[in-house]
């Protein structure tokens, strides 16, 4: 598995897109941190970009890589290696190279800001962790889609749809339901609904770290309560589950699939 990981990682970190992605985060990080005085606002802006962009890039890279590497995967399948190691290696190769772009792209500005301006920034290292989780989660989901759909156009469509649903539509439905059922106690529902969407979960985790939950009103207080205690662990646990389950599913599919 490590050999496959090494080579797919080497292949990806040399692709032009990895550099574009890295450069984007570098520019974003530096310009927002050094051109803005209010650290909280900067981090909120960064967060809004990270929780939407990392899933999208993970989805697109995951699906494109697996479709374009299809024939090469066949070549690997003919070698004396276990199937699950081939797929695990390739998946980790993509997810790690994307995460590296994110962590370096935002980490370097953070580091320089931390040394030059204010060490408060370290509280937001959390943002990088959450972004890495989202990359792993959405890469795994999109690889699942590519393994289950031979038709590339369909697969690509499903993947984009999945991203759209979790990043945008889910929130819409969620908000509408909150408005519609305003008269009922919704705290448990709100918490549960958040757990089932990794993007929402990540957003809430970062927001609560920012200590601006007062802005979120009653629900914010409720969340604050929950996340102050064991909530952080439960939420991180949910993110781990969101990663492990799709990976298990993709390996299961990969082992049974005809190539």
């Amino acid at each position: 598995m490590w050999k496959i990981l090494k080579y797919s990682f080497a292949d990806l970190v040399r692709s032009r897109w990895s550099y574009v992605y890295l450069a984007f985060y570098l520019i974003l990080g530096f310009s927002l941190l050094f051109l803005n005085n209010d650290l909280s606002k900067t981090v909120i802006t960064l967060m809004n970009i990270v929780v939407v962009l990392t899933p999208m890039i993970g989805t697109i890279f995951g699906i494109m890589y697996f479709y374009s590497a299809r024939e090469f995967t066949e070549l690997l399948l003919a070698q004396p290696i276990k199937r699950r190691n081939i797929f695990l290696g390739q998946y980790l190769g993509i997810a790690l190279s994307l995460s590296l772009s994110l962590v370096l792209g935002l980490g370097i500005p953070f580091l320089i800001y931390g040394i030059a301006q204010s060490s408060e920034i370290w509280d937001f290292g959390f943002l990088l962790l959450v972004g890495t989780f989202l990359t792993f989660i959405f890469t795994a989901l999109s690889v699942n889609i590519s393994l289950r759909n031979e038709n590339k156009v369909k697969g690509f469509g499903y993947a984009i749809l999945l991203w759209l649903v979790l990043a945008v539509i889910y929130d819409g439905i969620f908000l509408i339901s909150l408005v519609l059922f305003d008269d009922y106690p919704l705290d448990r529902f709100t918490l549960a609904a958040t757990m089932f969407n990794p993007i929402d979960l990540s957003r809430i985790l970062v927001l609560l770290k920012l200590d601006i939950s007062a802005l979120l009103g009653y629900t914010g207080a409720l969340f604050q309560n929950f996340f102050q205690g064991s909530g952080v662990f439960i939420s991180l646990g949910m993110l781990v589950l969101w990663t492990v389950v799709p990976v298990k599913l993709l390996l299961r599919k990969a082992i049974r699939k005809d190539f």
Binding site: A10, D11, S15, S68, A69, F72, L75, A78
Partner: peptide, 11 residues
Amino acid sequence: LPQIARFPDNL
């Protein structure tokens, strides 16, 4: 020897 030969682009 597979029918179609395609390899990782950047190696």
